[in-house]
Nucleic acid binder design. Structure first.
Lengths: 356, 356
DNA sequence: TTGTACGCGTTATCAC
DNA sequence: GTGATAACGCGTACAA
């Protein structure tokens, strides 16, 4: 029985299963079955029930169902605050891709921000332990852990995206950063470059390690020493990639033996770096070649157009969701924890043969 | 009693209120009170209960509470698919700002995509009528409506953001688009520009109308006819702002009496437009001045740096949440439906006096 | 195939 | 101030 009261100011509550049952002339449980397992009910009664439900505009109550079956249909995505910064377009792409895949599977997406304060950790843990969410996709290297509660021990399926956490047992969807940047470096070597500047991200994290390793591997392959690359950036307190690029440009100006090619770990850094470098009178790519990471659409419209390594966010999101849902449905462990999605170098005019 | 079974493969379920009650030696209802209304319980027993809860790592079940009190603590944000495109950085900023404000109020944020298909509408309606969400913030001009169910009649507090929907009774948080673009146009007039190109957004929507009106108002103020501005863009099927800019640049090339200033309704359009215009041999700002909308950080690093009208997304998000929560708590109507947050023109080198 | 009865975990209403 | 008890709306054994 709908609790609708005609008194204004009262909470409205839509039609209940009981209302549908009464209108269709059947028991509540029959309605329940007709809606959930349409197969286990007489075709004729099912039609009666469907008609009644439609007539009343009935919508099942998700919380009541969730409580009863002991499961929610909400997945949370854990976003570190630092990811929000910059032009990388990563967040919208990831969210749209993941949400789309989730909805097809009957799930909803909830956002959880993981900042550096304990409150945000506690909040995420409440979501996990309070039964609000059924699984999590994390884009953070650190799992929330407060007061003995830990996201890892919440009994919740978790999939890591962007960061490889297969070593701690989490299914992970990552790109082949190291390989991609190695190939990009090889391209630069092939053009004749012998001295490099590497713009590190804000943290000594997985990506930084992998990407720098890719550069080193390429150098080794060409018989060059590690000293052929100079590191810049990597400041923990800089979240805006743009700032890193500016600082790095200043660093570059102060450098003695100048590199002829720059490898940036994000498009933001590359864009602001290039801007300042050009205002210092240097020409791209004549004086300096640049390649970066992220694949932001805006790179195509820089002057000169910027070479960048595109990360297939759409596919990563789909894969992450697929892994998560399979972990939820059949609780079997995935065959391989580490799932690599290949990224792709988009070559543009910012790379050329060195002048001297 | 926690249903933990030591059998592997069984669903884990954390400690219940009953477990806390037993450990503290009190009744379940007392635990409930101690946690919800700490004032209405003896200080000493409250401490016992808190200790027991902490020891067990108890987290209240959100669905059970929601079912009982008939309210959820989830807010949904309705994002139109078209908003995801481009470099405008609008989505991440909005999400972060809104989520932060919501969490402070004890709410969580759920994402709902509104595409052009009926399925996405139905999905949003299920969320609303199924009791999953307690309120909605919409960034879409159209409210989902399928099979007689309509989001407007879901009995759910709704706040519109970016788009002014005060005319249909929805509290709205908008920027002063028209005024801001009028002032920007005035600045261009002051520099000596008399002929303009206006790059319209993908739809004849609220923003387009407002912004174009701002241009016209400025022209009128200067005694110029409406024909002083040429419209370009505004194609419905183009979602990527970058493409609009490219098309518009081609349109510009074919134009007879060439404008000397461009007003773009998004940074994406302006960036790609400028890129192609420059590759056609024209110089910015000598041959053509440009100003655009969005305030993307990347504009500062274009060549030349791009003047843009910054929309204070952070403040808009906070205001939207404040409106929504006040509508939830005290169900009184807000004094004013239309809430205007002032945007701000950031002047950069892309604007100058016309050559001829 | 359909109906009856109970329980999911919590909060609110009542007595005590 | 505290404890027993009845809901909240739905799913699912079990019986019919």
């Amino acid at each position: 029985m709908s609790k609708n009261k005609d008194v204004l100011g009262e909470e409205q509550s839509g039609p209940l299963m009981a209302d549908v049952a009464r209108l269709a002339g059947v028991a509540i449980s029959t309605v329940s079955r007709a809606l959930a397992n349409p197969g286990r009910v007489n075709e004729k009664t099912r039609q009666k029930i469907d008609a009644a439900a439609k007539q009343l505009g009935y919508t099942p109550n998700a919380m009541a169902r969730g409580l009863r079956v002991g499961k929610s249909n909400i997945i949370m995505i854990v976003l570190p605050g630092s990811l929000y910064y910059g032009a990388s377009q990563v967040i919208p792409q990831v969210l749209q891709s993941i949400n789309k895949s989730l909805i097809q599977g009957g799930y909803n997406l909830m956002i959880a921000n993981l900042d550096r304060d304990e409150a945000s950790e506690r909040h995420i843990l409440d979501l996990a332990f309070g039964g609000t969410v059924r699984g999590a996709i994390i884009l953070s290297s650190k799992l929330p852990e407060v007061d003995g509660r830990s996201l890892a021990s919440a009994g919740l399926p978790i999939v890591s995206m962007l960061l490889d956490m297969s070593e701690v047992g989490l299914p992970s969807v990552v790109t082949n950063d190291r390989e991609a940047i190695r190939e990009a470096t090889n391209d630069l070597l092939g053009l004749g470059h012998r001295r490099f500047l590497y713009l590190a991200g804000p943290q000594e994290n997985y990506h930084d390690v992998e990407r720098f390793a890719g550069v080193i591997e390429a150098l080794r392959g060409a018989g060059l020493p590690e000293s052929a690359v100079v590191r810049s950036g990597g400041r923990l307190d800089y979240q805006q990639g743009f700032n890193i690029g500016l600082e790095a440009a200043d660093d570059f100006g102060a450098l003695g033996d100048k590199p002829t090619a720059v490898i940036a770990t994000s498009d933001d850094m590359a864009i602001s770096f290039m801007s300042r470098i050009q205002s210092m009178g240097l020409k791209i790519p004549e004086d300096l070649s640049i390649v970066s990471f992220d694949g932001s659409p805006v790179c195509a419209f820089c002057s000169p157009p910027l070479s960048t390594i595109e990360q297939p966010m759409e596919e990563m999101g789909q894969t992450a969701v697929a892994l998560l849902l399979s972990a939820i449905d059949r609780s079997d462990k995935p065959r391989q924890l580490r799932n690599v999605i290949r990224s792709r170098l988009i070559v543009r005019a910012s790379m050329a043969t060195p002048k001297a």
